[in-house]
């Protein structure tokens, strides 16, 4: 600012102030003068080492950068997730508003149909485990993954990346499906009985995609699921009972599938590297 005073501390006085050797009155005058004098402020810049200023500045920038991240990322960081992990999670498709809108809309339409016809409600429940399966496969299949080139070139553990992203999508889509299923007149059993098969199918897709493309893996698993529904349904009653697959033996089969898939996935995890052809 334009100094409004005729008095400026000279170089000696400024130096005395910097060295803490200025008398009380001189120091008081200098400090008051500095508030209004642009020139004298600039004259003081060399008195603080550039390294110190740069270090404080770097920390300041870090803090401002951190504050600018989305609130979801800040929450994840507070939960103890590393910066890189949080960033990766946020890059998952389920973190897009468009994704939530699309999945939410699809489920709502299903619910509306189910409300008009109980048979449709059964169908919704049968297809419920497939929603997270397809969503998960789409989250990392090379043909859908917009961040593929980036992840392939990034030194980040592939398995970790895959599980984080698939996990984000699986959790989000499963949560949406739970909300939708709870709106059905099925009670608690109807709401949660499909969860175990869904988890098993998701891991099965991941395990299968160590051999084939994730999209193909999702297709195989979906077909397998529908076959299981069909087989279980016709074993009990005619006409087809679509929910028979959710009985005790169905749940046990899900646990078995989950176990096998986890073992396969862990053993073949290196093949999931996005840089190498599946």
């Amino acid at each position: 600012m334009t100094p409004r005073t005729v008095w400026h501390p000279d170089a000696t006085a400024l130096q005395a102030y910097v060295d803490d050797e200025a008398g009380a009155a001189l120091a008081a005058s200098t400090e008051a003068h500095l508030l209004a004098c642009h020139t004298c402020r600039l004259a003081l810049v060399p008195a603080v080492t550039p390294t110190r200023l740069a270090l404080v500045r770097a920390d300041l920038d870090d803090r401002l950068d951190a504050a600018e991240r989305p609130w979801v990322e800040r929450c994840l960081r507070r939960l103890g997730l590393g910066e890189a992990d949080a960033r990766v999670l946020l890059a998952a498709p389920s973190m897009r508003r468009a994704w939530w809108l699309a999945v939410g809309l699809a489920l709502s339409l299903g619910l509306v149909a189910a409300g008009q016809d109980p048979a449709q409600a059964d169908a919704l429940l049968v297809f419920a485990p497939l929603l997270p399966v397809v969503a998960t496969a789409a989250s990392y299949a090379p043909r859908f993954d917009t961040a593929l080139a980036l992840t392939a070139a990034t030194p980040y553990p592939t398995m970790r990346l895959l599980l984080l992203r698939a996990g984000a999508v699986a959790v989000a889509s499963t949560a949406l499906a739970v909300v939708a299923a709870s709106a059905l007149p099925m009670g608690l059993a109807g709401t949660v009985s499909w969860l175990l098969p869904a988890v098993a199918l998701i891991v099965a897709v991941l395990a299968l995609s160590t051999w084939v493309d994730a999209g193909v893996a999702a297709g195989i698993c979906s077909a397998g699921w529908l076959t299981a529904v069909w087989t279980a349904g016709y074993g009990r009653a005619r006409p087809l009972d679509p929910l028979a697959v959710y009985d005790v033996s169905g749940q046990l089969a899900s646990i078995a599938l989950l176990g096998v898939a986890v073992v396969v996935l862990v053993r073949h995890r290196h093949r999931l590297d996005p840089g190498s052809p599946a």
Binding site: A25, A28, S29, H33
Partner: peptide
């Protein structure tokens, strides 16, 4: 103690007084 003795300074008269006048001495 060593950093003490500063005084109001918004007005230039006071500022100049601090440096050159009796107020500075009185503060010290």
């Amino acid at each position: 103690p060593e950093a003490a003795g500063r005084v109001a300074s918004a007005e230039e008269q006071v500022l100049l007084g601090v440096e050159h006048g009796d107020l500075g001495g009185a503060l010290v």
